[in-house]
Write a protein that binds this DNA or RNA. Structure first.
Lengths: 249, 249
DNA sequence: CGCTACGTTGAGAACAATCAACCCCGGTGG
DNA sequence: CCACCGGGGTTGATTGTTCTCAACGTAGCG
């Protein structure tokens, strides 16, 4: 179990930091994607008041499963992975989170999963209790949260279909298309798509081993469907073909 | 693809039907478990006014993936299965629903999965638009919905761990314990536990084939962990041992 | 009294896991 | 400057769990 939690520096408390904006939230580029997008300009101060910035390096843990769930988070840059472990160390990634994504929503008093940075990342941290107050004040925000939870639920069901019924080949094709679609949503490059996580992380997300992930990548490469570029980027040569593969064609 | 949608009889519109209660909702025995539990006695009429009863026989479809999502439902008796299909017919059950469970929550305009009765079942049906109005009037109800969605999300993550990383043996043990726990929550018999779904349904839920499900049941039986009783009931002889197996022990 | 759906069991095949070797690259220290 | 080291990635050989194909049993029902 890696430790390094203390490296998770708390930065940028919600204070004015430029002459143009009274809070970092006003300058937040992904606000519309995130929970905070539910608020109007003049209400943003309320959320800024309870927000703390968090910065993580590659591999830094954010929280561990079972820990008291005192905060919830919103990713503002980078990539974060969330996962569950079995007693013997087997790991299942339950998601990769990108800017705008929300984590820590727990019905219980403890986190149901662990979270760790994939790349250098920034997040906004909200104390649960105080966010709860805001949710009661702004029903629009609560509604947004419900919408986000519904999306997550739909994605989880899609992932169950993948884990339970797709072959390694179908899984990898689905994974690449998913990454590409999500990059597009965020206005990032969708075609040579960034794949910042390791083969091992991908395997734990798709229910495969690193070896199988690696072999399947090369297989798709030789089939002319993708090209592996330096810097962990993947070019989707044959999007249409990949879509067919991902759906079992 | 089985048809029988027209057999899905609409029954018991929300009208008085006894001298004791002004609506069926007031007599609803699982109300506290369900979404409606968020309302006070005197508010129940509002939900009763938009509720239609639905009764399904074993195998009757409730709705299909892709259909316009005009209603949401709450199970009041029986058991319902929800699933997604791949083009070639491979199926992944994404959940089994019991009294108090809610379905149809969709962020999109169409259902993201299909639903079908496992046993003779009764549900309450709410038009989405009209329920939306109620949610806006009763924030407590919306909050309850968010709580239910959070629970579902946690369950979905647990299921991903199962699908991606557990062996057949661990899957079956987990499944039996889950059924038992849920029966207990509803005040039903937890130990010889009711297993109303077919081996094939179980397989599609756990990412296995019927043959493997069957073999694994007999294996657990011979190991002295369970006993297969008539009427689709299973006795958990060695709960503690099963728990160990389910966690990879 | 068959028919059908479901469940069980067996034999063999297959896909992915495991075990193992090797490469490449970046960092570190001699 | 270069040798060493460690982590991640790729590839190969082999194993094994689960799937597939097939036969048969059983229970409910028209």
């Amino acid at each position: 179990m890696s430790t390094g939690a203390d490296k998770a520096a708390m930065l940028r408390p919600a204070q004015p930091r430029s002459s143009e904006h009274s809070s970092p939230c006003e300058a937040c580029s992904i606000r519309e994607l995130s929970l905070c997008g539910a608020l109007e300009e003049h209400e943003i101060g309320d959320i800024a008041a309870i927000t703390t910035g968090v910065e993580l390096d590659h591999g830094d843990p954010l929280f561990d499963e079972g820990e008291p769930a005192r905060h919830v988070f919103s990713v503002t840059s980078g990539a974060v992975k969330v996962y569950k472990l079995l007693a013997d160390g087997r790991r299942q990634m339950t998601g990769f989170l990108f800017p705008g994504d929300f984590l820590g929503l727990a019905d219980e008093e403890t986190y149901a999963y662990s979270a760790e940075a994939v790349t250098r990342s920034k997040l906004c941290r909200f104390p649960r209790r105080q966010l709860q107050v805001l949710l009661e004040r702004y029903p629009r925000m609560e509604r947004r949260l419900l919408t986000m939870a519904s999306h997550e639920l739909a994605a989880a069901q899609e992932q169950m279909l993948l884990l339970g019924r797709k072959t390694a080949r179908e899984k990898i094709a689905s994974f690449l298309l998913m990454l590409s679609r999500r990059a597009e949503l965020r206005g990032l490059e969708a075609n040579p798509v960034e794949v910042p996580m390791s083969r091992n992380d991908i395997g734990d997300y798709l229910g495969l081993t690193t070896e199988t992930v690696s072999r399947t990548f090369t297989q798709l490469k030789h089939g002319g469907h993708i090209r592996l570029l330096p810097g962990g980027r993947v070019e989707l040569i044959d999007r249409h073909g990949l879509r067919g593969i991902s759906e079992g064609g």
